[in-house]
Design a protein around this nucleic acid. Structure first.
Lengths: 111, 111
DNA sequence: CAATAGTACTTGGCCATACATAGTACTTTC
DNA sequence: GAAAGTACTATGTATGGCCAAGTACTATTG
């Protein structure tokens, strides 16, 4: 058990939430997402993102279409399905609750 | 992949953070923690909490002393070690960053 | 037109945590 | 001394993030 481990654990699920959010705002492909996550200081590597997208697609929360690119191979542009939108709304609630609960714990002073 | 799974994943690491925080405020034993977590709407079962405490102790972030109880078996009262305090401070930073990053993503409107 | 570099996506294996479930040990109460 | 309650322990499972290596397509370049 070390700090790095716990930090990794803390990210679990949150990444999924962020990805869904980014896609909910419009069609994007993987590199777009990586850029936005990096800007928000959430560093993600390909080996994390691609499998996640595949899982989300298999769960029918996402769908994609191939779009040809002028500079390289074609790209998968993702959009949310209806199921994905619903899922995201639920997840938002969960996240808000979690943040609130954590705040309750961490801002409580010595009794 | 379903909602429940992701919710479970979201808790990972955060629980550890909350536990450390609760202990940082003074000597407590497991049931105290369960009560406080439940009050904050973080539902935890024994099978999750006890192994976590053992892990934290083995990592030398916690130490405990046995205290006899008037109503049942003796209890382990936990306190943070110096190492634990440092760990908690690091974790606080990680958590704050994560919340902030997530907010950056989720409050961004359609570009 | 091979060879190289760059972009986009894929795959397999590893690890740590949360959880379910069952079990041990001690104390009080009737 | 049997039952109920409290506190802690042990085992096995599943999941997601990560590392690392690999595939496939396009554009450039000598």
């Amino acid at each position: 058990m070390n700090l790095e481990n716990t930090q990794v654990q803390m990210r679990k699920g949150i990444l999924e939430y962020c990805i869904l959010h980014i896609i909910s705002r419009g069609e994007v492909y993987a590199s777009d997402m990586l850029d936005e996550l990096t800007t928000a200081k959430i560093i993600v590597v390909e080996g994390t993102l691609y499998p996640l997208l595949t899982r989300l697609k298999n769960a029918e929360l996402l769908e994609y279409k191939w779009v040809e690119s002028k500079s390289g191979p074609p790209r998968k542009y993702y959009t949310l399905t209806d199921k994905g939108s619903k899922f995201l709304r639920n997840l938002s609630e969960t996240w808000e609750d979690l943040v609130h609960s954590t705040q309750t714990i961490t801002t409580k002073s010595n009794a």
